[in-house]
Write a protein that binds this DNA or RNA. Structure first.
Length: 235
DNA sequence: GCGACAG
DNA sequence: ATCTTGTCGC
């Protein structure tokens, strides 16, 4: 177990977009670098799955990110890291990545483990321009990524069946951009979409394997708890 | 123009 | 995301 909870202030990379127009241009320039023709790591294998999440303190203009690596077989924490920085972008639906990614990259850099899969809070291809947070992070790191969101954003879906593992297509018009996945019986589903170098079937299988006791994957729960702690301890 | 809108 | 206590239920 690594205790990399020291807070390194990760500033936004120079040239990071400042305006919505610049951010849209960046999405447009990077979107075709997403790799969709790889199946991704095999579900059921012993993998290092890394959850990333971010917490904000608007008062102090601070953002704390956490990256927590779990063993997919045992769901035990193998390594963790945090980073603290300044908020790099306002929250704009469709541009979430520009707010979260700089600090997430800093945390991933400090993580003493090699991710086989990165699980993001939010969407990948389920995005107005098919380039959400998970896709963006995947392109920048080259790592296999998926997005697991708590809300359907602007997309529509029929209710999945009541059993754990049941799914329903998440639709943008008639295009399946992700899946509503029931991780617990009778509990609101999570919303899974492909990020980079993982197909949708495997993205859902990994999500289900990581979410055994609670609605959300353990990766997300661990990263959420750690980034909140890092923010509280930041100064 | 108005409302909706991942975190 | 964040503001925020107790409370109902398995």
């Amino acid at each position: 177990m690594n205790h990399t909870t020291d807070d390194t202030t990760g500033e936004p990379p120079s040239g990071w977009p400042t305006t919505e127009a610049e951010a849209l241009a960046v999405q447009d320039a990077l979107r075709d670098r997403v790799v969709l023709d790889e199946p991704g790591p095999a579900p059921g294998a012993e993998l290092t799955a890394v959850g990333v999440d971010v917490a904000y303190d608007d008062e102090r203009d601070l953002v704390a990110a956490a990256a927590v690596a779990l063993d997919t077989r045992t769901l035990r924490v193998v390594a963790e890291a945090t980073a603290v920085g300044r908020v790099a972008f306002p929250y704009v639906p469709g541009l979430l990545a520009f707010r979260e990614i700089p600090t997430v990259l800093a945390a991933l850099d400090r993580l003493p483990a090699t991710p086989d899969l990165v699980v993001c809070d939010g969407y990948g291809l389920a995005h107005p321009r098919r380039f959400g947070l998970a896709a963006h992070l995947g392109v920048l790191t080259g790592l296999p990524t998926i997005g697991v969101a708590k809300n359907p954003f602007t997309f529509r879906h029929a209710p999945p069946g009541p059993a754990r593992g049941d799914t329903a297509p998440l639709l943008d018009g008639d295009e399946e951009v992700g899946r509503a996945l029931r991780t617990r019986e009778g509990v609101k589903p999570v919303y899974v979409s492909v990020g980079h170098r993982v197909n949708l079937d495997r993205a859902c299988a990994h999500t289900l394997g990581l979410a055994r006791a609670y609605r959300l994957p353990e990766t997300t729960r661990a990263a959420d708890a750690l980034c909140r702690r890092a923010l509280a301890e930041a100064r």
